[in-house]
Every structure is written in structure tokens, then in C-alpha cells.
């Protein structure tokens, strides 16, 4: 499938301050792409460059073959956008805002718009200034989806939504994907990305540090094992074993919590030498991967901390 977003060597600075540096990636049409990074990493800058709100210092960004800056008008017809911080005229009601943006987009299917409003259970008669954070988010989400865009660019879209509405949002993203539309989603809610995205890009300090399929990214993750023993075991038992990154000992040597990376074979064999009461392992999550990437030294090198 062809790439709908193509970013090549994109660089943006704000005076002397870093924005993003030499960012390159591509997003295939029809996929849900997760764009991960901590605050200030450059996610919003990248998105604002795609939306032609900022002008790149160098590099190119194209959407559906159109230059994001030079042909912004044409490409904005294809896009639904949710900004990181929703800001519209606070004196308009939710209904007025949706109607205004529907007009600016040349009209939308009213029945579909009503459907979206019902799905999010939005009271459109209240002024934007009177909405809670979650309801403000709903208004901008509905305006992004209401014209059934070919590409959705969503900057931390579920921030402030309650779990029920997050589930509704997840369903809407999946429906969009099933209809062959593309979703570019920035987030630091990693479980959301894990559930929704097929591809992930991780940005750190303005640079894209990794891009790949969700499965490819998972292989670098760490996970935790907690083992409880009937008797106290020597504290050095699990240190220096292959796959062990960190060891914490509790309950006077009766329990350990291991941070693992890679196969657990050596740990299982070492534990088997002692009477084991219980063994649990946390399913690897993107949170672990995320933390791993943003450790102070930024490397995935094996490091063992001993906490007794």
C-alpha cells in the first residue's frame, strides 16, 4: 500500500531552541500510526508542521503526494485534526462550533454528525467555556471525524476523556481503519497506542529514535518477574544472570522482583534450585519500552541495580 504521509529530514527550531531534528518516517494508507514521546519531545511540532501551522526550516513533508506547506489548502480537505490543546471561541455553544466548522469544510452529512454527537453523548447547547475538559475534547473530536476525512491527525486525542468515551474513541478509530482511512495518533498513553496502532514511531528530544511495527517495538521491552520463596535465598542468586537487568529483594530474602529483558531461561533454572511459593510475570507493555528509551543514558545496555 502507498504511503499517505512521507516525512523526510524534517527540521524545525524556534529561534535557538530545538523543535525537531532530521525527522523521517512514512505512514502507509489505511494504517493506524502511533507517535510516542514524552512532553517536549517534538510530537506537537511534527504535527503542526504536517498541518502547515509551522514552516519547516528544512526537509519535506508530504501528505497524499501533496507538499504540506505549498499545497496545504488541498491537503486540508483530506484531513481531520484534533489539536493538543483545544481552543475555540469560548462563547460559542458546542452546536455552533460544529456548525461553523461544517460550513468551513463545505458542509457535512448532518445525520452522521448527529450520530457522532450521540455516540459521545455531547450536550451541544452549552457554551464551550462551560464545558469540562473532557467535553471540550469531545467537541474537537467530533469536528475532526464529522466530514469522514481520509486522514485523521490526532494530537493526544483522549486526554481528559473518561474510560467510556475512550472506548468509544477506540471504536471510532477502528471503524476508520476498517474503512481504509488512516489515523496518525500522538500519545503518551501507551496502552492506547498498543491497542490501536499497527505502527509506532518514538520521538525523543526532537529526534525519531525508532519506527517499526508494534511487534518489532515490543521486542525491546523489559518485563518484571516476581518470585516468592519458602526460604530466604542468597541475594546474589539472580545477579549477573542473562536477561536480568535489575534485582530487588524483599521480605528478608523470601521474595525477589526481577526486571528482565530477553529470555527468562537462566532465571527459571536458578529459581528452581529453591522451593518456590509463587511466580508471576507482568505482560510486557509499551510503558516499559517507553521508560527504557528515556532512561538517562538512553542506551539499552545491561545495567544491574541491587536493592536489598
Amino acid at each position: 500500500m502507498a504511503a499517505i504521509i512521507e516525512v523526510e529530514g524534517l527540521t524545525k527550531s524556534y529561534g535557538g531552541k530545538r523543535g525537531i531534528v532530521d525527522v523521517s518516517f512514512a505512514v502507509e494508507e489505511g494504517e493506524v500510526f502511533g507517535f510516542l514521546g514524552p512532553n517536549g519531545a517534538g510530537k506537537t511540532t511534527t504535527i503542526r508542521l504536517l498541518m502547515a501551522l509551522l514552516h519547516a526550516d528544512s526537509g519535506t513533508a508530504r501528505i497524499a503526494g501533496l507538499d504540506c506547506w505549498k499545497q496545504s489548502l488541498e491537503l486540508k480537505r483530506l484531513i481531520g485534526y484534533v489539536p493538543g490543546e483545544p481552543s475555540v471561541d469560548p462563547n460559542l455553544t458546542g452546536g455552533q462550533i460544529l456548525e461553523y466548522f461544517a460550513h468551513l469544510r463545505g458542509g457535512v452529512d448532518q445525520s452522521y454528525l448527529e450520530q457522532l454527537i450521540q455516540r459521545f453523548e455531547l450536550d451541544t447547547s452549552r457554551k464551550f467555556r462551560q464545558y469540562s475538559t473532557g467535553n471540550k475534547r469531545k467537541v474537537v473530536l467530533i469536528q475532526a471525524f464529522m466530514h469522514r476525512p481520509r486522514l485523521l491527525i490526532l494530537d493526544e486525542p483522549t486526554s481528559g476523556l473518561d474510560p467510556l468515551n475512550q472506548q468509544e474513541f477506540d471504536r471510532m478509530v477502528r471503524e476508520a481503519r476498517d474503512e481504509g482511512r488512516t489515523v496518525f495518533l500522538s500519545s503518551h498513553v501507551l496502552s492506547e497506542v498498543e491497542q490501536l496502532c499497527s505502527q509506532v514511531g518514538i520521538i525523543r528530544e526532537g529526534r525519531l529514535v525508532r519506527v517499526g511495527g508494534i511487534a518489532d517495538v515490543k521486542d525491546i521491552k523489559r518485563y518484571e518477574m516476581a518470585i516468592t520463596f519458602a526460604d530466604a535465598i542468597p541475594s546474589e542468586t539472580f545477579m549477573k544472570l542473562d536477561g536480568v537487568v535489575n534485582v530487588e529483594t524483599f521480605d528478608h530474602g523470601h521474595a525477589v522482583r526481577l526486571t528482565m529483558q530477553g529470555p527468562a531461561d537462566a532465571v527459571i533454572k536458578a529459581a528452581a534450585r529453591y522451593p518456590v511459593v509463587s511466580l508471576t510475570s507482568h505482560e510486557p507493555s509499551l510503558e516499559d519500552m517507553f521508560l527504557h528509551y528515556y532512561e538517562a543514558n538512553g542506551s539499552g545496555a545491561k545495567e544491574v541495580h541491587h536493592v536489598a
Binding site: 502547515a52 486540508k76 490543546e85 481552543s87 468551513l104 469536528q143
Partner: peptide, 12 residues
């Protein structure tokens, strides 16, 4: 205050 952002991301 960012109130133009959404307007400028429509085909205007």
C-alpha cells in the same frame, strides 16, 4: 491563544 489553529486546519 490558539483560537485560529482549528480554523486554519480547515480548507480555508
Amino acid at each position: 491563544d490558539g483560537r485560529l489553529d482549528l480554523v486554519l486546519t480547515t480548507p480555508q
